[in-house]
Design a protein around this nucleic acid. Structure first.
Length: 707
RNA sequence: GGACGCGUAGCUCAGCUGGCCAGAGCGUUCGGUUUACAUCCGAAAGGUCCCAGGUUCGAACCCUGGCGCGUCCACCA
């Protein structure tokens, strides 16, 4: 054995595990209880970052622990097509080559992105292996695999048949440059300076930052309690330039303290106005089309973009402008190109969420789904209560195309489970046109736990659903976790997972958020090459609670590398000692009980307590406590005190037997955390070890009976 | 405006349902050269547990209020 541990044999170790098929539950025909985790599929297109490294570590610790405990263990890996994200990255690449998505047909574009993603997917898989992930690669799923798509289709159909899918005109967040709508969550609100124009509507003055939308006004609203305007309610105001008369109405959403306290109502271009419009039965008028150009306005403005139109209209409004002031307010911007989002009326598919929310809240209340950390349960409930109907249409190509076909004759929509209808089910007409839109990524990934298990192996769904625990970052609780619960219960009648373990974000060593612009990005693969996967893994659970954000520093990783080296050297001491005493046969301490002294009994007792505490902590997902227990036992109790205090002892025989026994058990409980070094050590000393397991990864967790 | 957190050693953080002199890692200082490891060993310094009240025999921990910081969400035209 070398003087120091070097981690360069990690790949061989991983290959050994794969060769033994240790990660495939089919190799264990036991009737034991199943334990399963579905991996949140990383974006196929991006290299792994430290956040991924954290969930890999956490999940792998749990998986390896339960595997050693004898459970039938399955960890399903996967990759996500990451709809909008990927298409925009790809389009950027096209632009660099002087091409655009409009140069290709839909099918060509899809195929090109598909090929591009396949190339990158391989890298992602490679990196997951470098981290030691003990997934069953034979069950790998991609979110655009045909069988996954089929599950998504039939779930959509089921939702439709249950009356939970509807097509509606709604205000959506539309980006005219990207040509797509975004969910509420994809819009960034930024603080901006703008002019607030006070306009004379004859009977009343209103204030607006968007004068280009005045031709879309259908009313002026005031707060019902606003004494200034009480007698105007029911009367009319007049839109300048076109002189159209519109009613003055009262609505509680109007803030009397803002501007003049009178709000022009433009239901087609503002979400609040849309809501007020609905309440008062006002018919919306659109003045901005999907390209961001003015329509339904006086001739001279038609076709202008909104910025130019605003300038022109402000010029023409002239003496109608009573006052102009600068204000700073928040404006919705596109999270991709940072441009202004136009709230626009559009036809989209929606999911009616209230029945699904009820199912989910009930499941949480009945403790069918348990959040390991209570505070996330509180957050989830809060989200559910504020969830609005879910717009699932996206105007992009890279995704799952919505199986909705509109009849060219009667214009009714035919919804299928994916198959192309040969005739309209309402009028029998044979010409139908498919909706060009694709599903929101979160809609299909919300089905991930059951879509994967329904398509891996024949009995997987039966055996492994609901999965044992969902491990994911807390920042996607609202995007993903709550939607998986809704869709899982709806589609299968059963919860998708029993526990939700949400972990905190990885930050830099000062606790700052990691971002490219700050230049504090930590590349896990670089660290792993430098210090070994075990060190990186340990540094991601060490010292901070799982549910809290963790500050990662290279110092920390180095500290864990030193720990790995300590483990290596205890093994080296044992190996050298045994080879110095060729006649020495390792015996279990229970067989030589009479020869044990106080120190021997003490360390054996300590081992027992450590195993117990580590098991408890892992089962409660308290991983930082678990690893620090092992760390203290291995380094302080075993190496510094016991080994150091006994190395020159007369009774070498007993000492070495006790040491060997404690150490082999120690690397067993350390294995889920640091699989490579422990396996590597096991391969070195297994001939003098306590059991005859060929690999440590496939060995059994220590139990009270054999301690 | 709403929700959820955080404030403990120089830094990053533990401290579970109130109870032994408040802990760890890193850093700092001092001392160790053979024989498992300098990626090591031994020792030391370093804390008004954000502030103020309250509950209690007893509070870093529970309650109330403040101050400071962070994240997410949202409907200010």
């Amino acid at each position: 054995m070398d003087k120091n541990y070097n981690h360069f044999s990690e790949k061989e170790i991983y290959a050994l595990w794969e060769k033994r098929c240790l990660f495939n539950p089919d190799s264990f025909p036991s009737k034991k209880k199943p334990f399963s985790i579905i991996m949140p599929p990383p974006n196929a297109n991006d290299p792994l970052h430290v956040g991924h490294a954290r969930f890999v570590t956490i999940s792998d610790i749990l998986i390896r622990y339960f595997r050693m405990k004898g459970y039938k263990t399955l960890w399903v890996p996967g990759a996500d097509h990451a709809g909008i994200e990927t298409q925009f990255v790809f389009e950027k690449k096209l632009r660099e080559k002087g091409e655009s998505r409009f140069d290709f047909t839909r099918e060509e574009l899809y195929q090109m992105i598909w090929n591009y993603v396949q190339e990158n997917k391989a890298l992602m898989i490679e990196q997951l292996k470098l981290l030691g992930s003990s997934c069953d690669w034979s069950r790998f799923k991609f979110t655009l695999d045909q069988d996954i798509i089929n599950v998504v289709y039939s779930t959509f159909k089921k939702l439709y048949d249950a009356g939970l899918v509807y097509r509606g005109k709604k205000i959506i967040n539309y980006c005219p440059r990207c040509g797509t709508s975004f969910s509420q969550l994809e819009v960034d609100y930024v603080e901006r300076e703008d002019f607030l124009y006070y306009l004379d509507y004859e009977t009343i003055h209103i204030a607006t930052t968007r004068p280009e939308t005045i031709f879309a006004d259908v009313a002026v609203a005031v707060n019902p309690n606003d004494k200034r305007y009480k007698n105007l309610i029911g009367q009319y105001a007049t839109i300048p330039i076109i002189k159209r008369k519109i009613p003055i109405i009262a609505d509680r959403l109007v803030d009397p303290k803002f501007g003049t306290g009178a709000l022009k109502i433009t239901p087609a271009h503002d979400p609040v106005d849309f809501e007020i419009g609905l309440r008062h039965n006002l018919t919306p008028i659109s003045v901005i089309d999907e390209n961001g150009k003015i329509i339904n306005s006086p001739e001279k403005y038609i076709g202008l973009n909104t910025t130019v139109a605003r300038e022109e209209i402000v010029k023409d409004l002239d003496h109608f402008i009573v006052k102009t002031e600068k204000i700073s307010h928040t404006v919705g911007t596109c999270y991709r190109d940072k441009g202004i989002i136009e709230p626009t009326l559009s036809d989209q598919w929606f999911i009616k969420v209230s029945p699904l929310v009820k199912l989910s809240l009930d499941a949480i209340k009945e403790k069918k789904v348990v959040f390991v950390h209570k505070r996330f349960e509180r957050m989830a409930k809060h989200w559910y209560k504020n969830l609005k109907d879910w717009n699932i249409s996206r105007q992009i190509v890279w995704g799952i195309r919505i199986p909705a076909f509109r009849c060219n004759s009667c214009t009714y929509w035919n919804i299928t489970s994916g198959e192309i209808p040969d005739k309209c089910q309402y009028c029998g007409h044979t010409k139908l046109t498919q909706d060009p839109d694709t599903f929101d990524t979160w809609f299909s990934s919300g089905m991930w736990p059951f879509a994967t298990l329904m398509t891996t192996r024949k009995d997987d769904f039966k055996t492994f659903y609901p999965t044992s625990v969902m491990v994911t970052a807390y920042d996607i609780l609202p995007f993903w976790v709550i939607r998986m619960i809704m869709l899982g219960i709806f589609a299968t009648g059963n919860i998708p997972f029993e526990k939700v373990l949400l972990y905190g974000l990885v930050r830099d060593k000062f606790g700052q958020k990691i971002s490219k612009s700050k230049g504090n990005v930590i590349n896990p693969i670089e660290m792993l090459e430098k210090y070994g996967a075990d060190s990186v893994r340990n540094s991601l659970v060490w010292g901070t609670l799982i549910e809290n954000d963790i500050s990662l520093s290279e110092d920390n990783i180095r500290g864990q590398r030193n720990f790995a080296n300590k483990i290596w050297n205890i093994a080296r001491f044992i190996k050298i000692s045994f080879s110095n005493y060729p006649g020495l046969v390792p015996k279990e301490p229970s067989k030589i009980r009479k020869r044990l002294n106080d120190e021997d009994r003490n360390i054996l007792k300590k081992l027992q307590l450590t195993v117990k505490s580590v098991s408890n902590n892992i089962e409660k997902c308290k991983l930082s406590q678990a690893i620090s227990c092992i760390y203290d036992f291995a380094w302080k109790d075993l190496a510094d005190k016991y080994l150091e205090g006994n190395k020159s002892r007369e009774d070498k025989d007993t000492f070495l037997c006790v040491l060997r026994f404690c150490f082999t058990n120690c690397i067993k409980i350390l294995h889920p955390f640091m699989p490579f070094i422990t396996e590597s050590v096991w391969q070195q000393i297994k001939e003098i070890s306590i059991d005859d397991s060929d690999t440590l990864a496939g060995s059994a967790w220590p139990t009270n009976r054999n301690l």
